[in-house]
Design a protein around this nucleic acid. Structure first.
Lengths: 136, 136
DNA sequence: ATTTAATTCGTAATCATTCTTATTTGTGAG
DNA sequence: CTCACAAATAAGAATGATTACGAATTAAAT
């Protein structure tokens, strides 16, 4: 996934192309890991000193909405990462040191649906936390 | 699990018996679901108008520490529930309407360790969200 | 180029959680 | 039972992430 493809997808959905959005997308394309809102803000402020949290959050949520990003809560902060929908649904190992992730192709829901008769499953979360080989 | 058993366990660990703790435990014993800190506070204030958030959080964390409660983050708030360690490690279906839970005996980590060679797994989270039969 | 709706800025408000200090309370020893 | 001390609590302020809002700016369509 590159920045242009992502912006194209936004255009199709009726969202405008802005410098701030380009920059936000660049950050995610360059870093294959979950990033907190405040880190995005810090990064962007080097180019656009005036950006506000409002802009960051609005765009992060919008990008999550159109499935360009996926979100999770880590240590009380929302974190986002590029949603690599080149391969299908999957989960992640998340390094609690460096934040880098490793895809887990296995989804536990495959083995489980029969035991939830009568329950309307809307969503699920499966994440593994620990230290990656580099940080270990 | 009843309140007296829980207080006994606390005493063994050197924690004192206080009216606030009794009341907190009562709430959890009576409700088999994840509860937010502020709901605990509201409930307790009917008996102890002066309780502070500090007391709530301090006790919730302490109770989680001694494995009487388990915690999770739902909608940006920490939630707690009685940890029924009568049966071993397990996960939960959580109803997004009423908050009630259903135990899932299956743990995905059993099927996965071989694919994480070199990774130091410290923790994992597996939760299923949706509507229970009553709320559906 | 003009218009229009989306987007951003700047700042203030909100909400959950944590911290600080003084006071109160439970517990075990005498 | 009473005392002393450590532990626990109360009260309110501080923090930090997130959300909200009106005014100003900007992208894109006509």
């Amino acid at each position: 996934m590159n920045v242009e493809t992502a912006l194209q997808k936004l255009k199709e959905k009726g969202y405008k192309r802005t410098k701030q959005r380009e920059r936000i997308l660049e950050i995610f394309v360059n870093q294959d890991q979950y990033i907190a809102a405040k880190e995005i803000l810090k990064e962007i402020q080097t180019d656009f000193p005036g950006v506000s949290y409002d802009t960051i959050y609005r765009n992060l949520y919008m990008l999550t909405d159109v499935d360009l990003l996926e979100a999770t809560e880590l240590g009380g902060e929302k974190h986002f990462r590029l949603c690599c929908d080149t391969h299908g649904h999957h989960h992640h190992f998340i390094c609690t040191d460096c934040g880098k992730t490793k895809s887990i192709e296995f989804c536990p829901m495959d083995s489980i649906n029969e035991s939830l008769n009568g329950y309307d499953v809307e969503n699920h979360k499966f994440e593994i936390y620990g230290k990656c080989p580099q940080c270990h």
